[in-house]
Every structure is written in structure tokens, then in C-alpha cells.
Computed example of a mutant assay.
Amino acid sequence: MARTIFRDKLASGKFFVVPGIQDMIAAVVANKVGFDLVYGTGYWLTASAWGLPDAGIVTYTEMKNRMETLVKTSNAAVIADGDTGYGGLLNVHHTVKGYEAAGVTAIQLEDQEFPKKCGHTPYRRLIPVEEMVEKIKVAADAREDKENFLIIARTDARQSEGFDGAMRRIEAYEKAGADVLFPEALESEEEMAKACSLFGKPMMANMSNGGSSPVPLASVLKEIGYAYAIYPSLTSLAAAKAMETALLDLKEKGIGQPDGLFSFSEFCSLIGFEDVWAFERKWGKDAE
């Protein structure tokens, strides 16, 4: 069931940030920090689970299962990356139904050909705008909760059709019934501000570290006019760097207990071991 928090936050008009979640370790750490919305990122959930690139290789069923696990693990509502809807109109209908049943609060759909590519990598190919308009209409019709389950429409047209071409697509997607608009990989803060000024519906920013777009401070994004920003790669790249540093120290210096480790006892608590221990106290062989 979709949660109301996403629509409520958009309606408030107050800018907010949403971290990307690549695995369930990141999910429980985000629980600790305290977020009411998280982003189920296709790129990083794919990389963490299967060690594969975000290139349309992972199936709908595999990704739906990952989103369902994230919903169960996270205290926050989940905005889910739905790629292209995994095919044509019937696939979009099935994907929206499945994601909503999995418990996510919003689905993001993009106008690339299937199989898709990451929005900050080359060789992306787009479907005609008319096809994407139909996908948005199908997605909006397929959802059970018309009020709270939101449709995010993304265009990857900036690099192939230019800024104006991307804006024409976004205008068509807005008219088709998208709740949130997402022009991917804009190339400057000036483009971002112009895009936000053109439309009445909420605009989403993708702050992909190392990608095509600049990553200004959240306060700047707020002034530009975005409703919110996702940070899909932040926890993944931070974790990868920390792991590389620790492994190099182990290999080269024999350091197996470096400074700065997350507390093992606290992580046991975050991941649910206290419930396991309570069960053992009640039902274990040594229980009195």
C-alpha cells in the first residue's frame, strides 16, 4: 500500500532530500539516521545484488523482489526506479501493479528503449514521445491508489535532443498525467532553473555523484525551484571507497581493526539480533 508521506511532502512546498539505497545495510543505516523517504535505485540495487551494470539486464521479477525487500526493511516510504516499465504497454501495466503490490509509494518510468541504460552513461536510445505518453497514461490507470501512488516521468532526451527537446517531452508527460517530472542529466544550474520555471508540477533533481549534472548544495537546489532531490549513488560510492581503503590496509599493512569502524554491537541491534536473542531466551534449550 502506498504511503501518504510523499504526496504530503510535495504538497507542503518544502524542499527535501532522498537518499538512494543500494542494499539492506544502507537501509538499516538510513533507518538509524532517520529518513521518511528513500529511493530504490535501479543502478545500485542491481550492482549490489548481482554485480551487473544498469543496462536492462536484470528482470522485472528480480527488481520487484528487491523493492519488496527494501519496503520490508526500511522504515521509510520507498520511491522505486521502474526503468522503462520493462517493455511495452502491457509490461508497464504489469510493472505498476506489481510495484504497488510490493508496497512502494511511487514509481519512476523513463522514455528509453528497452533494454535501458543508466542515465549518466552513453548509448541511450529513446522511444517516440507518443509511446511514452501512452506509457504514462497506462501507468496512471493501472494504479489502485490514484491519490497516493505517484507516477514520476523521466526523460533522457537532453543529450540527444537538446534542452528544448527534453522540455517538449516533459511538457507532453505532464499533460499525460505524470505527478512528478524528471528531466535527467541536465548540464548546468542554469538549465535546472529554466526547467523548474516552465512547469507547474513538482520537479525532481537527480544528484548522481560523478554523473553529467552538477551537484550543488541542497539549499541551491531549493532556490533553483526543485521539489526534492535524490542522491542515488551517495551511499554506494561512500561505502565502496571505505571498503577499498580498509581492504588495502589489510592487504598492505595487516590492519584488521582500523579506526572508524561502525559498532558491531550497534549493527547487530539495527539488523534485528535483539529479537533473535529475545526468542532464544524464551524458547531456547537453556530457557528456564
Score class of each variant (00 low, 15 high):
residue 54 D to W: 10
residue 67 M to R: 09
residue 111 D to M: 11
residue 156 D to A: 14
residue 147 E to G: 01
residue 125 R to W: 08
residue 8 D to A: 10
residue 202 P to L: 11
residue 173 Y to M: 09
residue 77 A to F: 01
residue 33 V to L: 15
residue 273 F to C: 03
residue 273 F to M: 14
residue 158 R to T: 11
residue 286 D to S: 14
residue 276 V to F: 13
residue 117 K to W: 05
residue 197 S to V: 10
residue 42 G to F: 08
residue 129 V to D: 00
residue 33 V to Y: 15
residue 107 I to F: 01
residue 33 V to T: 13
residue 274 E to Q: 12
residue 159 Q to L: 11
residue 117 K to P: 02
residue 226 Y to S: 01
residue 126 L to W: 07
residue 98 G to M: 12
residue 62 E to H: 02
residue 60 Y to A: 14
residue 95 T to W: 02
residue 153 A to H: 07
residue 8 D to V: 04
residue 176 A to N: 02
residue 265 S to W: 07
residue 166 A to Y: 00
residue 23 D to I: 07
residue 68 E to C: 12
residue 268 C to D: 07
residue 254 G to P: 08
residue 67 M to Y: 12
residue 182 F to S: 12
residue 207 M to A: 05
residue 259 D to C: 04
residue 170 I to T: 11
residue 75 N to A: 06
residue 46 T to K: 05
residue 120 H to Y: 11
residue 120 H to Q: 05
residue 26 A to L: 02
residue 187 E to N: 08
residue 221 L to V: 06
residue 86 Y to F: 15
residue 145 D to Y: 08
residue 240 A to G: 00
residue 105 T to H: 00
residue 254 G to T: 12
residue 285 K to I: 10
residue 151 I to F: 06
residue 87 G to L: 10
residue 140 A to S: 11
residue 1 M to Q: 09
residue 173 Y to I: 13
residue 194 K to T: 13
residue 200 G to D: 15
residue 227 A to N: 08
residue 283 W to P: 03
residue 126 L to P: 01
residue 233 S to G: 09
residue 73 T to C: 15
residue 284 G to L: 06
residue 244 E to K: 13
residue 29 V to K: 01
residue 64 K to I: 12
residue 83 D to T: 09
residue 95 T to S: 10
residue 17 V to F: 00
residue 101 A to F: 09
residue 98 G to C: 10
residue 15 F to T: 03
residue 271 I to M: 04
residue 112 Q to I: 08
residue 171 E to N: 01
residue 258 P to M: 15
residue 19 P to M: 15
residue 101 A to H: 06
residue 78 V to N: 04
residue 75 N to R: 14
residue 125 R to C: 03
residue 113 E to L: 12
residue 243 M to G: 00
residue 74 S to V: 13
residue 67 M to A: 07
residue 84 T to N: 13
residue 40 G to T: 14
residue 195 A to N: 02
residue 163 F to G: 01
residue 168 R to Q: 08
residue 95 T to A: 10
residue 150 L to V: 09
residue 36 D to P: 00
residue 136 I to W: 02
residue 33 V to H: 12
residue 135 K to R: 15
residue 108 Q to T: 05
residue 215 V to I: 13
residue 117 K to F: 03
residue 254 G to I: 08
residue 248 L to W: 02
residue 265 S to F: 12
residue 272 G to H: 03
residue 22 Q to R: 09
residue 253 K to S: 04
residue 278 A to H: 06
residue 255 I to G: 02
residue 126 L to F: 04
residue 62 E to M: 10
residue 196 C to Y: 04
residue 218 A to R: 00
residue 169 R to E: 00
residue 103 G to M: 15
residue 123 Y to D: 15
residue 28 V to F: 00
residue 36 D to Y: 07
residue 134 E to M: 13
residue 264 F to D: 00
residue 243 M to R: 08
residue 86 Y to W: 15
residue 122 P to R: 03
residue 179 D to E: 04
residue 96 V to A: 01
residue 160 S to R: 09
residue 140 A to L: 11
residue 251 K to A: 06
residue 23 D to N: 14
